[in-house]
Design a binder for these strands. Structure first.
Lengths: 334, 334
DNA sequence: TGGCCTGATTAAAACGTATCAATCACAATG
DNA sequence: CATTGTGATTGATACGTTTTAATCAGGCCA
């Protein structure tokens, strides 16, 4: 209750409040003797700076906002870990917002961020309408898009090349001698699904095949359950494809289970590759080939860009960073 | 840049700043006509309340701190989702801190929370020394322990009964006719591991067996990889146990893979049960029996308790809530 | 000795809001 | 009509910090 303020510290150390503020913010400006005296007073009184007062006066805070689509998804969890680590290294706190893919919740998160006067916002937008994000920048809030390419060069963005990833996956299947290839994907609205399909088609074209050959099986969700349903769908048909590319590992794991239970051998009868390389990809009974993304790194770099923009607004050059994914070959592909 | 304040709104609506503040905080106190006029002005000017100024003046914020041990663990992710949902329903923002099991990082998180003058803190403590948490309460910051039983009745806590869970798991194995039972666990310092073992021993005793029969295989980590290593360890011996209880699902999935690859049939040769019922438990090739915990609910209830303590500090009665886990029987056990 | 410079310290103002006592308008009551 | 009461609104103040200009104490040089 008895909240101890900078004044109490000043009184105890026999200096003025301004000096205490200086040892807090520009220690080099204050003489050695007084500094140690003030630091002692701080320790003795258990003073901790009132962040809100500081923010109010200084005009900016030491927090950033992070808005993700689904905190339950291991992909975003890894990103968040990267963000949190980098932010905490630089003395920033992270306010977490989960949009659950809902535009309404995303708006609400952004409002909270604005109220808190966060220094900047990291966001994986829940849809393609980015106009409203521009309004943030007008308020002086820095912005970095995460796992989404920039629309214009006047903003920062970090992403992983999903087209390349799709091409890697299907290229690998083709090198394994695959004939008919299926693409098991999620909702058409999801950009990542589209990009990965484009990559798959490019790989087919590069191999002198007709991209239209790619057989698409679209599911309403990207979960293991949906993957198993996709398997049932395929098994009800006359012939199976030689190889399957799943738009994420959850779909692939469900598919794997569905196939194995029906007596289909993986990879002997059907090759199978996923995307994301989540932990469980390597732990499944037939370990899963997949496309690895530098997820944690994505979070770290995005945060670094954001803080750079905050700390050096004039010299800061907006960057659009595109990471490249990696092919991870395991047992599920020939 | 041109940040619009409550004064600008007041000028536009032709009222005093105090009235605008009332519209914001106690709309029922202000006459209908002026209220709509003020609300219009707010909308037209794009005013958003300055959270820091509000916090500074009011003496308390609309944020809570959440400190977890490992944001990469699906268990904590689910908890965080529950926290985030409940907090956002009640108009609170969540500041996330990841301690990574490091005491130092935990301290740093708590400092950040204190600076931000969070209304309360939700924490899964990284070790058993809870004394320092008391100091938070002295600062007037509410506190709820998450997934950790309270030490005294003067604090709130929510947890899941790990002893019961352990007993459920081993009881189920015994009913399936298991003779020799193994317990695959993590570091001894982890309270959950100890509690689950105690439950397992109780189940043995209740069946008229000697608790000392329980064969313990301790691993340094609780990951799928560690689970597979545990399998190798077991397979190197003369005889396998009839049944295995793993302290979490990651260990169990690794164990499952190790056993199946060695040609051991599950559940025909060995029954296997895990703990946590993570998503992937049901998606593995032989779906995994497990102990389900109300994880998301844990986060929601913890947040509810915390906000109750914040909003009704006088009538608030500290509660220690202990949830009960559920047995989920799938294919991996007889 | 007087003037000037430098580095350290201080005093005071400002940030945007919430709160509380005071004021106001006006209707109801005696 | 005078009084009281009620509900709506206002004005002023304080919250804890940062920042800027001003002050101060010495040291240096002429």
């Amino acid at each position: 209750m008895a909240t101890v303020s900078i004044k109490d510290v000043a009184a105890r150390a026999g200096v003025s409040p301004g000096t205490v503020s200086n040892v807090l913010n520009r220690p080099e400006k204050v003489a050695g003797g007084t500094r140690t005296r003030v630091e002692a007073a701080i320790r003795e009184l258990g003073f901790v700076r009132h962040g809100s007062a500081s923010t109010l006066r200084a005009g900016h805070s030491r927090t950033i906002g992070l808005s993700v689509i689904d905190i339950g998804n291991p992909f975003f969890t890894d990103v968040a870990a990267g963000v949190e680590d980098m932010a905490s290294e630089r003395g920033y706190a992270v306010i977490l917002g989960n949009s659950s893919g809902s535009r309404l919740k995303e708006e609400r998160n952004l409002l909270v961020f604005a109220e808190q006067r966060v220094r900047g916002v990291l966001i994986t937008p829940s849809d393609e309408d980015l106009g409203r994000l521009e309004r943030l920048r007008e308020r002086g809030i820095a912005l970095v898009l995460v796992d989404h390419p920039a629309e214009r060069s006047s903003q920062c963005a970090v992403a992983v090349n999903d087209v390349t990833g799709g091409a890697m996956a299907v290229g690998h299947l083709l090198r394994g001698g695959a004939g008919r290839i299926g693409y098991v994907t999620g909702p058409a609205a999801i950009r990542q699904c589209q990009d990965r399909r484009r990559g798959a088609e490019q790989a087919l074209a590069a191999a002198g095949r007709d991209p239209a050959e790619l057989r698409e099986i679209a599911m309403p969700a990207m979960t293991a359950k949906a993957g198993q349903q996709a398997a049932e769908k395929l098994l009800a048909e006359d012939t199976l494809p030689d190889a399957l590319f799943c738009a994420n590992d959850l779909l692939a794991l469900g598919m794997l289970r569905g196939l194995l239970q029906a007596g289909v051998r993986v990879p002997d009868d059907v090759s199978l590759i996923g995307y994301d390389d989540i932990d469980f990809a390597s732990a499944s009974t037939v370990s899963l080939s997949s496309i690895r993304q530098p997820t944690y790194q994505l979070g770290r770099v995005a945060t670094e860009l954001l803080l750079d923009e905050c700390d050096n607004p004039d010299t800061h050059a907006h960057q659009q960073i595109m990471f490249q994914p990696d092919l991870v070959v395991r047992e599920s592909t020939r």
